[in-house]
Design a protein around this nucleic acid. Structure first.
Lengths: 328, 328
DNA sequence: TTGAAAGCGCTAACAG
DNA sequence: CTGTTAGCGCTTTCAA
């Protein structure tokens, strides 16, 4: 921190107002005094205190991001895209993690609002009208991603139901006699927001109704790898596992490989997300790209539109892309 | 944003000072007025404006982080650990990326300082006395990680030279007749900071001097995969590739696999970093854990110590851990 | 074309 | 035990 605008004004022998005018081209100013001030500002490396500016203008040029964490590859890719996108518009990012804890999420949101970020991007684990009201009470534009908190709130994501429906059909088209959907615990659905995975489950169920002779099972719970293994052992049917996240698929492949099961031969598997590390995994996992970068880009864009109050459409559904692989 | 402390004071029929005392237990206060104020504060959901507080106290409870990006798995793990660690102490994180661009790095550092973050963690691409002076001019505690900008500046990292030396010996111990070190372009070393990789190169060279009959080669440049492939093709010697980052190793394995070369059989390979996605890669990559979490934890800790001005030791060398795998 | 003065919302020194 | 006052560093009327 160097010099303040007051000190700069004294050095120049003018008032702070004049300094301000010179620096930001606001109002009429004598061009000589202006260049003199600019020269001095340069010389003393004057840089304004951004807190003070934020306090008075009410704009901080920060956006807040609340996500699970950046351990999860999906979120770190998301974060990367958000930061880049924000920087293009002169914004920085305050990043916070809720770590799958509803209280932390709320606390972090408050903190961001209290720091007067200009807008927030939120991948929530909560939902419902009450929470919507809380979000509104922050008095800060919020765009939700991934999980839909409430129909009224701005949202960016993909149509997971449709994606899963189509993918299920694709799997069945390959001749599998048994399809196992693998997702995180849905039991808490009433309390926590597992929208993304719920939606994917719905698409799966819908597709399976078209094929009553195909055996379909849903596994949820964090011991999914063991459960999946049991399913494979217990039946002689050609079995495919459809995971609602790539990471689950990778875990299962890992678990199965340790037990001598060959993907493609002993079982088929498909993921969801198309996280970037798949590049290094072989065989190439069949999956669905949910276009993280696109979601991020759209979320930032929508947020800026809301901040400028020039947007009424509050939902943006981004296209997913089926990704061919060698695991089906 | 709800009510301000001034409004709260009016609602309670007291002065702002009294409100302040009630909320933060500072100074004597009548317990009745106190509970009355707390009740009202609760009722109206009073939360202080953190910008204003920061402006007057000079503390924002934010730390700034400047890293490459969060696309790189190493950095996203790092970031995750930093955010978690900071939160424990009631701090949030302002995250910015320099994207391998020296000007952006400088710009982001200024911005953070101008926002009065209480401290900065920096993985720089620059180095030297001039830059050190710039960092000092920010008047904000800075801890450098990964790349050592200057001997005088606080630094947290591992002893990469020693790690590489030992690992090279380990590789040679396996009977390889040719060892190829793979690292990013070192040509720019004079201008940019590639400290991490330079250091690793030094350790490699040192080890190779002990074994004059082993053929040793260094590859740098972004077309390393092709170059590595050439090296393998051109010689009939048992060859191992030692990469200064896991990602390079994964790229090479990927590239070689596409061309029918079997790891373990046709060549040996080793990485550096032990990034978490290795968990899903098989065969298990031999590597060296540089303990990202440990580095992050130490960096945050050191930063807090500097902020409290109760630390004079400014360098912390964290232990690396050799990780056994199946690729040598 | 320039300056004086007020105010953003908070904390902190000093009186009473 | 409580209130008055000043000030953080900036922007923004309003007046000269």
């Amino acid at each position: 921190m160097g010099i303040t605008s007051k000190e700069l004004a004294e050095l120049c022998g003018v008032s702070r107002t004049t300094v301000h005018r010179a620096l930001y081209n606001t109002g009429r100013i004598n061009s000589e005094t202006k260049s003199m001030i600019l020269k001095k500002a340069e010389e003393y490396d004057f840089r304004p205190d951004l807190l003070a500016r934020g306090l008075v203008t009410g704009k901080t040029f920060y956006i807040g991001v609340v996500i699970m964490d950046s351990d999860n590859r999906y979120f770190s890719q998301m974060l990367n895209a958000i930061v880049r996108e924000a920087r293009k518009k002169g914004y920085s990012v305050n990043i916070t993690f809720h770590e799958d804890d509803a209280d932390i999420e709320k606390e972090q949101l408050c903190r961001l609002a209290d720091y007067r970020v200009d807008g927030i991007i939120l991948s929530s684990i909560r939902k419902g009208a009450e929470y919507r009201e809380f979000l509104k009470s922050l008095n800060t534009p919020v765009v939700t991603i991934d999980n839909k908190v409430d129909g009224e709130l701005p949202f960016v994501g993909i149509d997971g139901k449709k994606a899963t429906y189509e993918a299920s059909e694709r799997i069945i088209g390959k001749g599998y006699e048994k399809v196992v959907l693998v997702c995180p615990p849905l039991a808490d659905a009433a309390r926590e927001n597992v929208y993304v995975h719920e939606e994917r489950t719905v698409g799966f169920r819908q597709a399976m109704r078209n094929h009553p002779n195909v055996n379909s099972i849903i596994i949820d719970g964090w011991d999914y790898a063991q459960k999946a293994y049991q399913e494979l052992q217990e039946s002689s049917k050609r079995t495919a596992f459809f995971c609602t996240a790539d990471l689950f698929a990778l875990e299962i492949m890992h678990y199965f490989e340790e037990r001598g099961k060959k993907v493609g031969k002993d079982y088929g598997i498909m993921g969801f997300d198309n996280i970037d590390m798949l590049r290094y995994i072989s065989p190439r996992l069949c999956t669905i790209s949910n276009s993280v970068e696109e979601v991020a880009r759209n979320a930032v864009e929508l947020l800026f539109a809301l901040m400028d109050k020039k947007e009424t459409v509050t939902e943006r559904i981004v296209e997913y892309v089926p990704v061919e692989g060698e695991t089906l």
